[in-house]
Design a binder for these strands. Structure first.
Lengths: 339, 339
DNA sequence: ATGAAAGCGCTAACAT
DNA sequence: ATGTTAGCGCTTTCAT
């Protein structure tokens, strides 16, 4: 049988002790090169696979980290996980995934799972429906390092990695103004979600910086969906002073807007400019292609894991929470480029 | 401290032994209800979290399964993982994710990782570049249950869950014929990849079933990409007898075809029909919306995990490998619907 | 219905 | 440079 080889077997075969084998395998300085070689060779020959479970139990470090996401089906999170994975694997960490389906009750279960697995740290993006954060405070109290990514909460003393949504909103709006659009509207999302509120503020900031007074009639607050984008446009086009461009809080909303405008035979970008947010995959392929703001998902994954690894390495109990803010990346395409 | 409570602590507090506590917690029939209640209450009070690592070491079962995917960024795999996750969590299994980036060398590393983590089983989708399958045979030899999903290999005696690509190709082609298209072309992919070859066979099968002789001039074999779709159309439109419809092996290829046709002002679907394969997200949102074949990703994830759990539960060493074939689902949209 | 005791495979003092 | 020993937290046989 090749599947139950332990360090003791190697030790026996080499007429030495498990301790020496253990040290040799982990490249301990006090072990002679000769021994190390012999051990390595025998391990290879016996087809030895280290038992991480035993190692974890003894050392108290699992070399696993838990990642909690709202859904693996959302492109954005798949992409972030991609970034996390790459760093994790090269740092020798395993990644446990848990999906919350946007529900607090599953967040609680996920945390149970992670704690039982004795993960060395947790990365989490908060579910939409969560407003009671005690479960996060509890893991913090237990001394398990946590880092939020994207959907963060600044009031819990927990580190986070987010994109600068204010700046993203600002850039998007300014781009429309620079393209010569005169009345720029904004379709926003639920205001209790911080990122949407920040994008709205960025929109207002850009207008003001360009000497334009914010017209609240031009701000439509809805949900985040294709439907919301359609309703928004229908509403905006009924205004006495119609807008000639719109910054949508999210790409799907922008898509709804585009569909509605096309139905009404309003030419994009010549008569009406549209920009979204998120750089979803479809934006590149629709007609006209959609201008948007990229959230640097892969970088976000990398940055959050790196931050978490730092917390794991020097567990200064009383270190201040850190906040990494990534720059949003403008991606300008046809939907805003007028001649 | 609340974060180092063990069953011994509970036992001590209750004036009993770890064995009893362990049994009580796992609902052992020989333990009185009274004791069970007391143990549960004390566990709650002390904020006890079971140590899965210790449990795994002792019991030899990790209750973890490894999932190996080419990339978390590909929508398709994100979606399958979604399906796997849902079943896994409710069955009490943790999911370890490993990305191979389509490289055999990372497949080998992933397997090492999984073996070290002593996963109870492995789900894998084979990397494009892999042609030497010894690493999979080795885990099989070690007695670790394996199930392939989507990208499978039938020659290794390993169970798999796939969609019926032949049937998918058949359905797609037949749909075009039923819509009245007369000369249906096919853009295929690299033939050493089984799924592409199967779709090609499905295409040919449908033509024959409708009494149409296969014209090999109408079969273009390229890569799977937007570019390939464009080149294919350019090539096909130069034929003396031009096609009036195309079944593309994959949605991105179909997208390239559509872009090229639009540039040439050929009307879709009236003058030319296009159908793809995969049901990528963008297909719904482009103009015209793309007809395609859905691969039932979430079902695939569920089915593969269920099959794996069966293998884990009754490890009949000599049980025959099983093959689950899912039905492809037609999704017909504008790009093939002519009046 | 409960207890005693051994041990899963590894690591890390503490020897020598 | 290597060996001895104890033990991480749990499960499980064997006893009572």
């Amino acid at each position: 049988m090749s599947y139950k080889v332990t360090i003791s077997d190697i030790a026996q075969a080499l007429n030495t002790t498990p301790a020496t084998v253990s040290r040799a395998l982990s490249n301990h300085p006090a072990i002679s090169d000769d021994t190390k070689q012999k051990v390595a060779a025998m391990a290879e020959r016996l087809n030895y696979k280290p038992n991480k479970i035993a190692s974890s139990l003894r050392s108290g470090r699992s070399h696993a980290i838990g990642v909690m996401i709202p859904s693996a089906e959302i492109n954005f999170f798949g992409s972030v996980v991609h970034g996390i994975e790459n760093v994790a694997n090269s740092a020798g960490y395993n990644v446990l995934i848990y999906q919350t389906n946007e529900l607090r009750q599953f967040e609680v279960k996920g945390i149970e799972t992670f704690l039982s697995a004795r993960v060395d740290g947790i990365l989490a993006s908060i579910a939409k429906e969560t407003s009671d954060y005690t479960h996060f405070l509890e893991i913090k109290k237990r001394g398990v390092p946590v880092v939020f990514f994207d959907r963060a909460n600044d009031d819990l003393g927990i580190s986070s990695v987010v994109v600068d949504d204010y700046r993203g909103g600002y850039i998007a709006t300014e781009h429309l103004l620079k393209q010569g659009y005169k009345r720029v509207a904004h379709i926003s999302g639920p205001q209790h979600i911080k990122i949407f509120n920040d994008r709205l503020k960025g929109y207002m900031g850009a207008l003001q910086a360009h000497g334009i007074k914010v017209d609240f009639d031009l701000i439509y607050t809805g949900n985040v969906s294709i439907e919301a984008g359609k309703s928004a446009i229908e509403h905006l086009l009924e205004l006495p002073e119609k807008p000639d461009a719109v910054f949508a809080v999210e790409d799907f909303t922008a898509l709804g807007a585009i569909k509605c405008l096309k139905e009404r035979n309003i030419k994009i970008p010549d008569e009406f400019g549209v920009i979204g947010f998120a750089n979803e995959l479809f934006g590149e392929h629709i007609t006209p292609s959609l201008s948007t703001i990229d959230q640097q998902t892969v970088s976000m994954g990398k940055a959050s894991l790196e931050l978490l690894l730092q917390l794991i390495r020097h567990k200064d109990k009383n270190s201040q929470p850190r906040k990494v803010v990534l720059d949003p990346l403008p991606v300008f395409r046809q939907s805003t480029f007028r001649k």
